[in-house]
Write a protein that binds this DNA or RNA. Structure first.
Lengths: 359, 359
DNA sequence: AGAGTATCTGCAAGCGCTTGCAGAGGAGAG
DNA sequence: CTCTCCTCTGCAAGCGCTTGCAGATACTCT
């Protein structure tokens, strides 16, 4: 590999302009690079006479000078970068979190960069490693599974790290989470209040805390309110539309007693389940009530508007960013945060009273 | 500002471990940093004896050494980074594009980083500037508007830049686009084939090429097939659910003749329009046919499954990444690409024959 | 045995920036 | 007029890495 910058390009039709350096603008003005550096930095403005400052600014503009952030960060020790690592950007629930993060870090002059793991632990590890090599100032992990805890803690010895979106228990970093246990409880309480007696879940993968907690909250409240829960034989490998279909089919095809209300652990799974019910001519909510989780966009406009639980993503992202920024500022002990979800009843759940006997 | 790295942290409760450098592992082994550097780089492996190579690898592991990519890139001239700047990550259509990009660059050992403009030109310019300062190797712009062309061309003099997702005409960089003109034409042809005679559009903002082209394609084919098009008084400022509602209301409330089929320029607008129709008791497709654009997830499971046009996002992303990578490789003239969209008929459009007279 | 050739390692420069220190020059005080 | 102090600029080191070159071994061949 030759020294790419000048050589590689020289023979090719497309040429990219060489970038002006601090030394270039200094030379242009017969100044020293250090003076130019000071003149261009607002916080060191005052060390330079206003006349040279003006000359520097104009020359920098003329030459199209842009500071090289790599070189700068090498000296300052800060890259002014934080990275948020998401499992899957296609998940509409993550977007508000990203926006919450962006809105918090923007005021610090920090640019968040985003990376995606495709929900693959191996990719997560690689990405963490890569970002450490890149010397990002902090990491927000949005897509962790339980087995990732060790890697996260190890990264946390090097830079501030927080875990959010998918919480982890017993991890030695701040966790910014939504109270999914309460979310699950809300759904169970709703089912109970509608008079259901036999209900079931379409559980997401239990190695993701969110789903485990939804299950716990749902089950606990079901017990308290005397709701009978059909144990679902299987859980989704990934919490998707397709897996929702599969689980719904399994439930329908099993020899178990048939529940009158179903709690799908997220909206895509609920919609998958609804598509199966539609196939089989089972009416929602007349024959079967169904609730989802997350309040995805447009869930209000499905064939049957979906009862769900709103995930307060923006708030979560904001809190997560706030946590890493405080850690960056040297604040010693940064606390974990738990945000409340909000129940959103719609038409897909209804009273169990006038239900016909099970087929 | 003091030298942050060591000083700032020293007094605080949280301490972050100092990172091992090449010099550290060299010192540990009594070697020179250059030897360690060579031992750790697969492509220069062979310049170093296998015994020292093993010692180096083990010492590097023991000390937790991670190369500093900033410093490396300063020497190599490549950051191995490309950035994709999207307008809005909440738009589910962008995700497949991102995945297409990622899948193409991964094989080059390049990590794509993602940034978001919130569809704000000022933010786009800032972001481009920032990424140039960061010395990213290339930029993929996914959220451009017409007025951004100059800034994009100016960036393109420094690094490879391609424009995609929202194409720009007359911009001196490769454009990877979907043939939205054809997409619009497909919808008009569909309406004509169903026997509609009077139709209308809910247009997206015309300073975004996609919408302009959809309009052109739709209008041209409408003319060819003898379709009469009600001129919509207004266009959406942003192509959202809410603007879809607003435009639909305007159309319904105007004194114009009432169309029997509507082409909303994207799915969220179509869904907004549907919500208004639902409010007013207008049945889809019995009273009014409606088509959207993009084939967002779950549009098949709306109250009325939506006829739409699939946006081949993955293919677009892949092609865009391929273009910048070829530019990076010094390939002179990289061509623009135009990918075909795919028509997806569903239940929201139907024959106009047995339509009642207009109210 | 001596010359020639691989093979391996070290040296030092330099990527583009920041920053402590020192020096030049001018202003103000005595 | 001298001494001090302040303002402004330059010098040089160094952040952590790569890389051309040179030197030191070890190995082959005649």
């Amino acid at each position: 590999m030759t020294r790419a910058k000048d050589d590689d390009l020289s023979g090719t039709p497309t040429r990219y302009r060489k970038r002006a350096t601090l030394a270039d603008v200094a030379a242009d003005l017969g100044l020293n690079a250090s003076t130019v550096s000071r003149a261009l930095d607002p916080s060191r403005h005052s060390m330079v006479s206003s006349s040279t400052r003006e000359r520097v600014v104009s020359a920098a503009g003329r030459l199209g000078y842009r500071p090289d952030l790599r070189a700068r960060s090498l000296m300052t020790g800060r890259t002014q970068t934080i990275v948020v690592i998401a499992a899957n950007l296609g998940n509409t629930t993550v977007t508000p979190v990203l926006h919450g993060v962006a809105s918090r870090v923007a005021v610090e002059g920090i640019v968040p960069i985003i990376a995606e793991t495709n929900d693959d632990s191996a990719v997560l590890l690689e990405l963490i490693d890569h970002m450490l090599s890149r010397r990002v100032d902090a990491i927000i992990v949005m897509g962790a599974r339980r087995q990732d805890a060790a890697a996260i803690e190890s990264a946390a010895r090097l830079v501030p790290v927080v875990v959010t979106f998918r919480p982890l228990l017993d991890v030695a970093v701040p966790v910014i989470m939504v109270d999914d246990r309460k979310g699950g409880a809300l759904v169970a309480a709703h089912f109970a209040s509608l008079g259901h007696q036999l209900v079931a879940q379409l559980p997401g993968p239990s190695d993701v805390m969110n789903f485990l907690l939804r299950d716990e909250g749902f089950s606990a409240t079901a017990k308290e309110t005397g709701l009978d829960v059909v144990v679902t034989p299987d859980e989704a490998e990934v919490p998707t539309f397709e897996e929702g279909q599969r689980l719904m089919r399994e439930l329908l095809d099993s020899d178990d007693r048939k529940p009158t209300a179903i709690f799908a652990h997220n909206d895509p799974m609920a919609i998958g389940a609804m598509s199966v019910l539609d196939e089989r001519g089972i009416k929602i909510p007349a024959d079967l009530s169904i609730a989802g989780y997350n309040d995805m966009p447009f869930t209000a406009f499905l064939a049957c508007p979906l009862t769900t639980v709103r995930y307060p993503g923006w708030e979560v992202g904001h809190a997560a960013a706030d946590a890493v920024i405080r850690m960056l500022a040297g604040e010693g002990k940064v606390a974990s945060v738990c945000v409340d979800p909000e129940f959103v009843p719609r038409a897909s759940t209804s009273s169990a009273r006038n239900r016909t006997a099970q087929p």
